[in-house]
């Protein structure tokens, strides 16, 4: 039923869940059994004369007190598991996670940046959450953690992975058209491999233009094969004539390198007519090499 369990939070969360669920299943079974049993036993054809029992104080007390004890125990279990999630260990590695519509960017203290999160196994990791636009939420089911990423608010969370492997990162707070495409992965690696990765060794070759479109979430709004999504399609984009709104005025442009570059860095400058002006700026997200790689790729479509 649960996905992989890969952090130290998995056992307190799953434990509290199972404890509460066990009580709930029992209560539901009891209520349902009594309901069905009474309905059959006292059906009018068999039991035509009812008895008018107006109540019973003792019963009322019993079924107030017992649930109160049970829910207090449930509260307690939930609370002790949560307490651990709040206290960040001092020796945690710090990573800044930036959410934007609709991709994640992870930055390490030594300046290393990555679209996917890499962390060493059995070491606490403290993630500082930054949003550059709207609400997002950083969610790793395998770690049983989640926290909203709120612009202007210093949210953070921590976890300690205890299983090597690759796990999904979701955005869990609705953030617009590309919300369900705002996915990434967290790679839990042996300590040595992580250090090597952090120092840049074994860094993957720079992404191609095609891979960049996917990694940066562009394709949530722009199709490669023709249909208009939230934004215009990339098919045949280079050299295409387009009507655009520039500062409230409509004009016609031929899409060239300068236009593509401006559209990525200042998307609100010239918006193609018929599409909403919602594209986030990629300034600081794409490096110069990446911009060039994307433009070169767009020319081929």
């Amino acid at each position: 039923m649960f996905p992989d369990a890969a952090s130290t939070f998995a056992s307190p969360v799953d434990g509290a869940f199972l404890f509460i669920t066990a009580i709930c299943v029992f209560m539901l079974a009891l209520i349902t059994f009594l309901m069905v049993f009474f309905t059959i036993k006292y059906r009018r054809t068999r039991h035509p004369e009812s008895e008018n029992i107006e109540g019973n104080l003792l019963l009322e007390i019993v079924w107030t007190v017992i649930p109160t004890i049970l829910v207090t125990a449930m509260f307690y279990y939930g609370w002790i598991g949560y307490r651990e999630m709040v206290n960040v260990p001092e020796d945690a590695i710090t990573v800044q996670a930036t959410g934007r519509m609709w991709s994640w960017l992870f930055e390490y203290e030594n300046g290393r940046k990555s679209d996917t999160l890499h962390v060493p196994v059995n070491r606490p990791v403290w993630i500082k959450l930054v949003s550059v636009d709207v609400l997002h939420s950083f969610y790793v089911p395998a770690f049983r953690i989640k926290k909203d990423v709120v612009p202007g608010v210093d949210n953070s969370l921590w976890f300690q992975p205890d299983e090597i492997g690759s796990y999904d990162i979701f955005c869990a707070e609705y953030c617009g058209t590309g919300h369900s495409a705002m996915l990434s992965k967290v790679d839990v690696m042996p300590e040595k491999d992580f250090q090597a990765w952090l120092e840049g060794a074994g860094a993957p070759a720079p992404l191609s233009g095609k891979e960049l479109l996917k990694a940066k979430g562009c394709r949530g709004c722009h199709s490669l094969n023709g249909p208009s999504l939230v934004g215009p399609s990339f098919r045949g984009i280079f050299g295409r004539r387009e009507k655009v709104m520039t500062g409230g005025r409509e004009q016609e442009v031929v899409i060239d390198e300068a236009y593509l570059r401006r559209s990525m860095l200042e998307p609100a400058a010239d918006v193609v007519v018929g599409f909403p002006p919602i594209m986030p700026s990629q300034k600081g997200v794409l490096s110069e090499e990446e911009l060039v790689a994307i433009i070169e790729y767009l020319k081929t479509l």
């Binding site: 869940f17 509460i20 709930c24 449930m74 939930g78 002790i80 598991g81 953690i145 989640k146």
Partner: peptide
Amino acid sequence: LIQGALSVNVY
């Protein structure tokens, strides 16, 4: 109730 428990709610 399951969601009211803090640690489970986070999940």
